[in-house]
């Protein structure tokens, strides 16, 4: 499934310039070390973390998009950095749990 399709279906807010990518799955964690060790390239990553480290970790694995859940505000510095390194950051007011069930409904396994 394409990222743009998911953004539309779940009415996600785009915080950075978005490059469309193929999405291979979902990974939820707020631990960067988890992402480093277990997330797959092309995953979308649901987290409540918003600091610059998120960009570094997402870039390291080449995550399709980071979705910041709970409607958390993302600091400007993080967005700036993400734009520079072509990391997509999206946002949703839903919690990670709610968004997970919506992603299944949208057809992502």
């Amino acid at each position: 499934m394409k990222l743009k399709e998911i953004i539309e279906k779940l009415s996600l807010v785009t915080l950075t310039n978005v490059e469309d990518k193929e999405v291979s799955g979902v990974f939820i964690s707020d631990m960067l070390s988890d992402v480093m060790s277990s997330a797959e390239t092309g995953n979308i990553w649901l987290t409540v973390q918003t600091h610059k480290n998120v960009v570094s970790a997402a870039n390291l694995i080449d995550i399709a998009a980071v979705i910041v859940t709970n409607g958390k505000e993302v600091p400007e510095g993080t967005v700036e950095l993400a734009n520079r390194f072509h990391v997509n950051i999206l946002s949703s007011p839903l919690s990670s749990f709610q968004l997970a069930s919506k992603l299944v409904e949208a057809g992502l396994k």
């Binding site: 799955g25 979902v26 990974f27 939820i28 964690s29 277990s38 649901l46 990670s96 749990f97 997970a100 069930s101 992603l103 299944v104």
Partner: peptide, 12 residues
């Protein structure tokens, strides 16, 4: 299961 799967299973 991982967090995503756990969420999906509980949601169902």
């Amino acid at each position: 299961t991982d967090m995503y799967e756990t969420c999906v299973k509980i949601a169902s």
